[in-house]
Nucleic acid binder design. Structure first.
Lengths: 166, 166
DNA sequence: ACAATTGTTCAAATAATAATGGATTTATGC
DNA sequence: GCATAAATCCATTATTATTTGAACAATTGT
């Protein structure tokens, strides 16, 4: 396989993967492109490479920066913006977990707390409360577990471990 | 808050959550409805409750059965199909992990293996291979970790643990 | 101050995804 | 085996999400 083919396959697949992680296809493709770039890239580089419009690139770059998956680099004496990806995979993973926790887990935890306020006056509401309680226990446990994963030095531990288990 | 309101909020939120987990909105809502039902439900029950068409219910019930998040129940002397949800949250979670692993992680692992076949003949391809290797290490580690999570008796352990950490 | 370059916004167009509802198939009781 | 009820399929329609591109704003060098 040639480099070019591999690159294209990777970008395509990375984009598809993104759609399952709260990252849309183009956003994923841009991220994939930056991940394998040896140098910083500009909006025009991306437009040319992925055949997408300036507006699209701009919006998705903003999202990626917001997710802290890429970094903007301003060069003195150059009015272009340059971007480079966070290349530490573990950090990328943690960033995504962090974002998804905010977007998904927390609203659910809040909801479960809210709806626990109903009265258990019959079988239906009793069953409902029972399920809400189980979901609460689970969600809160998951929240804590993910916090550990994200905030801890697990980074180093896993990176080291990985070297021995490939 | 009344039961009815709580129920509606839960179903709505569960549906929205689903969209982030490879489960579409309606599929999530049906799952939510079954999760809090005290008895087995039929297609007509769901149509009435969620105001959606028979075809839609049918398609999504099939997906839910395929994901093993709900079970079909056939009653002798009754030609209707009944459904009930898997109510053990840990099992639900494991089922979703299992499905997503197949759908997302495995294609990625395969891709990474494929593209590792390119030659490292210049800086770009060397960098590319380096990143593919890091992603491989990470993906394979994740795969194994999730396997443990899904297949092991962690079920019992976590359920027990959860009782003490709420 | 002006021209040139780059970045940003957003309404409209397009594409992707999901839902409908009628046609068809399947299963069951009589 | 026939009538009927339920399930399934799927072409069409509706909805939602994404992309475009042109207008506008910001920045910098001259």
């Amino acid at each position: 396989m040639q480099y070019k083919e591999g690159k294209e396959k990777f970008i395509k697949t990375w984009g598809e993967l993104g759609t399952n992680w709260g990252i849309n296809k183009t956003m994923g493709q841009i991220h994939g492109l930056l991940l394998i770039s040896t140098s910083e890239v500009t909006t025009d580089d991306i437009m040319k490479e992925l055949h997408i419009s300036r507006g699209n690139v701009n919006m998705n770059l903003r999202s990626l920066v917001e997710w802290e998956l890429i970094h903007k680099i301003e060069k003195p004496g150059d009015r272009k913006d340059y971007y480079k990806a966070e290349k530490d995979i573990w950090t990328v993973f943690r960033q995504i977990i962090k974002k998804r926790k905010e977007k998904e887990l927390h609203p659910m935890i809040n909801l479960l707390e809210d709806v626990s306020a109903i009265e258990a006056k019959d079988e239906k509401s009793a069953e409902f409360l029972k399920m809400m309680n189980e979901l609460s226990l689970f969600s809160n446990k998951a929240d804590k577990t993910l916090d550990n994963l994200v905030s801890s030095r697990a980074n180093i531990l896993v990176s080291t471990y990985m070297k021995f288990t490939r």
